[in-house]
Write a protein that binds this DNA or RNA. Structure first.
Lengths: 161, 161
DNA sequence: TACTAAGATATATTTTACATGTATCTATTG
DNA sequence: CAATAGATACATGTAAAATATATCTTAGTA
């Protein structure tokens, strides 16, 4: 079980941008920093722009920057937007109606719930929480939560504002 | 983000065995039932036997059966034992000490926590909860939990006994 | 004891999703 | 109009996973 590098790189791009808020960053800058292929980053950047996480500027002197401040960018949302195959198992596929155990089998709903838990945990964090150093998080939920993660009791889970 | 077919098939094998408790099942039986290659199932069965989930009997008239009753088989454990790459992102790799954002970056710990949530949800279910029909679960936590999954407040999460 | 049917094991091959590369286009600055 | 940036389309490479093949071992049974 792993996320694609596409998602990984997407997270790194926004982390980079969050840590370099004062200037436009180019694809080449970021590729150099992480030592990853700029060809792949192009696609990543394109997607991030399409989804509204970053603003890009073409032409000489161009580059990109975050479209919002890091505390308004939710990690779970970003993963949902960049990871394009969230079908945990074969029984998620539309042409899998022939499973001999349906409808009794509850495997799928359990997997759906597990995936939901995964994303709900990510929803609990914003870019400002994971970017480190430069701009400290307003609240610091991270190391408190370890190992004994408890959802923010009642109400809204997502923290984007 | 998806589990391997190896894990998928592993779950199906134990579900099949749970639903056919009265006789030994062969690899061919299970492969036929789900229309999946028996060659792959061999490896799956081998692993399940190694991990103690099933007992196998060689030779004519042989086959396999569950080593324990379905209420003693935990879904999370089984996934942990069959899914062999649980490294969500590149920064989980041991040779990834050169990340320019370390040690400030908290991405990894957030991903670790999300993975933990995923598995903790699976830990909440036993084979008897997902096998459907035949042998109803002793408790029925499934549809109550949907969408608003809450961990079993304080104390032990895993339900294997 | 030989035959058959089952899993055990090792190795080889195929598939496929993902990653990466190349080329060209468009936009912007100076 | 030259240089530099992203946008876009398409082509290729690659590594993990899935599948296949072959042989070995075990056990029942004729």
């Amino acid at each position: 079980m792993r996320l694609t590098k596409f998602t990984d790189y997407s997270l790194r791009v926004v982390i980079y941008l969050a840590r370099h808020p004062d200037s436009l960053a180019t694809i080449a800058d970021i590729a150099r920093e992480y030592d990853i292929p700029s060809t792949h980053l192009m696609k990543v950047v394109h997607r991030l722009a399409q989804c509204g996480y970053i603003l890009t500027v073409r032409g000489k002197g161009g580059g990109m920057r975050l479209a919002r401040t890091p505390d308004l960018i939710n990690v779970g949302d970003l993963v949902r937007d960049t990871e394009d195959n969230m079908d945990i198992a074969e029984c998620f596929s539309p042409d899998h109606q022939s499973c001999p155990m349906l409808p009794a089998c509850a495997l799928k709903s359990v997997l759906v719930e597990a995936r939901k838990s995964f994303l709900a945990t990510l929803d609990f964090y914003r870019l400002s929480d994971i970017m480190g150093g430069a701009t400290p998080s307003l609240v610091a939920p991270l190391h408190q939560a370890h190992g004994t993660f408890a959802p923010p009791s009642p109400g809204k889970k997502k923290r984007t504002s």
